[in-house]
Simulated scan of single mutants.
Amino acid sequence: MLMNFVIKTVINGIALWIAALLVDGIEFGRGSSTWGTVTTVLLVALVFGVLNTFVRPIAKLLSLPFIILTLGLFVFIVNALMLWLTSWLSEKLGLAFHVQEFFWDAVLGSLIITFVSMILGFFNPKD
């Protein structure tokens, strides 16, 4: 169980890092060392995972009429909201992660994170 959580956190970290590389409005602050940057990415991935575990189901439940109305496309907006909330909470915790704009940076970033997490999730032996 703990190992599965660690693997999912690493997958989220890789997905967040790739999104930061591809979307100009998503930024990780540069640490003084490579280890500092990796630590920041993993801590942000942990924040992202906790928010997705506890807040995302509530947000999906509250937005269920919009999800049904848009045939599921509103889920991408919920995912973007989780990324934007991760940015806000990370800044409050002193982590160097920032999403500049909700629309397009967070929406595009959430699409990339979803795609990368899905691809990397195929290699997770626990799923």
Rank of each mutant, 00 (worst) to 15 (best):
F76S: 12
S32T: 06
R30H: 06
L108M: 13
L85W: 07
L89F: 10
L62A: 11
S33H: 03
Q100G: 00
N79L: 04
W35V: 11
L81F: 15
G13V: 03
L81S: 02
A19C: 08
M118N: 07
K126L: 03
Q100F: 07
S33M: 04
L42Y: 01
V55I: 15
G94D: 11
G36F: 10
V99W: 06
D24L: 10
V44A: 08
N12G: 04
V6C: 10
H98G: 13
I7Q: 01
I14R: 04
L16N: 04
L64P: 02
P57G: 05
I14V: 15
V38Q: 00
S32A: 06
G121N: 08
L62C: 01
V47G: 03
P125Q: 12
K8R: 11
N52K: 13
E27M: 10
G109P: 12
F97T: 09
K126S: 12
L51Y: 04
G72Y: 08
I112H: 02
K126T: 05
I14E: 07
H98P: 11
Q100T: 09
M118I: 05
Q100D: 13
S90K: 07
L61I: 00
T39W: 01
A106L: 15
T40D: 09
I119T: 07
L95I: 09
G109E: 07
K92P: 00
T53P: 08
F5M: 04
N79C: 06
G31C: 05
L73S: 10
F74L: 06
S33W: 06
L108S: 08
G36P: 03
L93S: 06
